[in-house]
Design a protein around this nucleic acid. Structure first.
Lengths: 112, 112
DNA sequence: TTTCATACCTAAGAATCAAATGTATTATAA
DNA sequence: TTATAATACATTTGATTCTTAGGTATGAAA
């Protein structure tokens, strides 16, 4: 499993972005979602994920409710208006960063 | 100056890639090159850069020679065959990572 | 009945970078 | 002419962020 180091700094953005898109998600679901979307290229470790979810909840960017599904307790997270602002602003930062990386590595443009 | 946190994990790749492309570069030149290429979106701090250059030199991925230009001493770095291998392999990892990020953030494809 | 998948969580440590600081030279501006 | 900015190297301290490893518990499959 490579690409471990590359995820540094992106985890929070990934989490907020995915929850923002799906309305509600639980932690374990996020790890699987990232695996599927990236075909295993990017892995989110639980040791990193849960502390970030708690931090975002603490910062009122996410709210959470427990639900019992098939005997298992899931903690569902939803984005707050506050969290929505963060998603929007970090999205432009991400695009700037990726554009920069493309210039450095001369890849084709990502976003138009 | 944003995007600070995003650079984590990429610095070594950036350094190797740029030196690989330009044949030889010195540290200060790298910081300026990144600024210009990315229009300020990405900044390489010297506190991070120099230790990485020394580390890569130590690992025999770079070799260095001092040259005096206009009264100023520059330390020019060149890539080694060893370093070339690292560039090649990390390049595919980078592409995988970026492809993954595009899937997550549904942006347009970077590489063909 | 044991193992795998699901689902939550925390603690300790490593890795990586930013900020600050330091030295020295040259060029520019006041 | 003298102060400041730009060039060019470097180190140290500390913060942030993740990995590794561990722990608990349930349900399904072998």
């Amino acid at each position: 499993m490579k690409n471990k180091k590359y995820i540094k700094g992106f985890l929070e953005d990934i989490v907020l972005h995915l929850i923002n898109e799906q309305d509600e998600m639980y932690g374990y679901e996020i790890t699987k979602k990232v695996q599927n979307l990236t075909k295993g290229a990017i892995a989110v470790s639980e040791g990193a994920l849960y502390p970030i979810l708690h931090k975002l909840e603490n910062e009122k960017k996410l709210t959470a409710t427990f639900k019992k599904v098939d005997g298992r307790t899931r903690k569902y997270y939803t984005i707050t208006p506050e969290g929505g602002k963060t998603v929007a602003s970090s999205s432009t930062e991400l695009i700037d960063f990726f554009s920069g990386m493309q210039q450095i590595f001369n890849l084709k443009p990502v976003v138009k």
